[in-house]
Design a protein around this nucleic acid. Sequence first.
DNA 1: CAAAACAAGACAACCGGTCGTATTATCTAG
DNA 2: CTAGATAATACGACCGGTTGTCTTGTTTTG
Lengths: 199, 199
Amino acid sequence: MTRIANKIINKENLLSQGVTLLMQQGYHGTGLKEILDAVQIPKGSFYNYFGSKENFAAEVIQHYINPFIDQLNGHLEAPGNNTLSALLCYFNELITELEKADFKGGCLLGNLMGEIGDTSELCKESLQFAVNRYRDLLQAGLLKAQQEGTVRVDKSAEEMADLLVNMWQGALLRMKIEQSSIPLKQCCENLLGDFFKAK
Amino acid sequence: MTRIANKIINKENLLSQGVTLLMQQGYHGTGLKEILDAVQIPKGSFYNYFGSKENFAAEVIQHYINPFIDQLNGHLEAPGNNTLSALLCYFNELITELEKADFKGGCLLGNLMGEIGDTSELCKESLQFAVNRYRDLLQAGLLKAQQEGTVRVDKSAEEMADLLVNMWQGALLRMKIEQSSIPLKQCCENLLGDFFKAK
DNA sequence: CAAAACAAGACAACCGGTCGTATTATCTAG
DNA sequence: CTAGATAATACGACCGGTTGTCTTGTTTTG
């Protein structure tokens, strides 16, 4: 095992553990020691890899969103019925996962937007980038659904994508304190299943 | 000045400063020292008043929501055009205030739901109670608007109130990282100004 | 004067970050 | 191909400062 390969593995482990801990306990609620102990990596190495906790968090954010992009992409590209159904299917998958996790954590992006969205410039930019990537993908899906005639065309796909992202984030917060997936389901039913539908 | 009156003033000052600091820096991001220094109250007194930081935060949450309840109530009871307009007027007032604050802070409830919603049982309950009080008031307004014929009746006032609260929370998060009131305006225009409207 | 309320600061644990040293990889010269 | 120089990485003891909480002595009150 070469040294350089080990570095990549270590960074990957740190980021992965960072996603888990930051999502559940927040930025200030998670100490470096806790992350480092979990993956058995000394502090000096951490600072060699990332330079600072803030910079680490900015990378964690990107590391977090990637799987969601892939998962959504998978549903959008799958040869199924129509794109609107694919979106509904995707969100139902998310809901199932959140139920399985007992509504713990929610969304790292939403949590960090609230906690450090206006105290860390670096993380704010990382959050912006991550949210925009996600929103753009939703927008592409909604645009396709518009062309298929299942989604109304008197509103732009971009605006609807923003509405969906925002209500979903709010629903995740409600989910956390109510320990229930009802807010999530209401979000899908009312937007994708009603408000966005072509007349 | 009696001793008991002073205690009330001190508690009030602590709660008020707590609202400001917890909203901007979060729960774990704000140390007791910072709050105590700001209001010139010794640490011993704090623990005499509140018992613990967690308990303090739970009280801060209630202290935070009260003015919003009052403000919304004011708009709902004012002898204006109709209740739907009153709701729109209320939210526009909020938007103006957030713009004046340069989009800093956002909503204490949303921020804390994300940060400690699933680590502090006590705060979770306090958040639940605060959010429900707010939601119930919105629900009452929407119900009145339904009776006035300006809001659709094929959806329950409760469901619409939940949707409004959730999208508003999500919009506040987006506002924080985009430094823009556009998400907030989109929320109002699309829900109150479109989706909720009677046909 | 007893009991409760209050305030001051001690307290250990922990924070993010630094630094000197040891180890290893890569490059250069002969 | 190798010997030596240089850079990159690994590592954890250690830093000053802060954390939330608790103990203890004082003051106030009924």
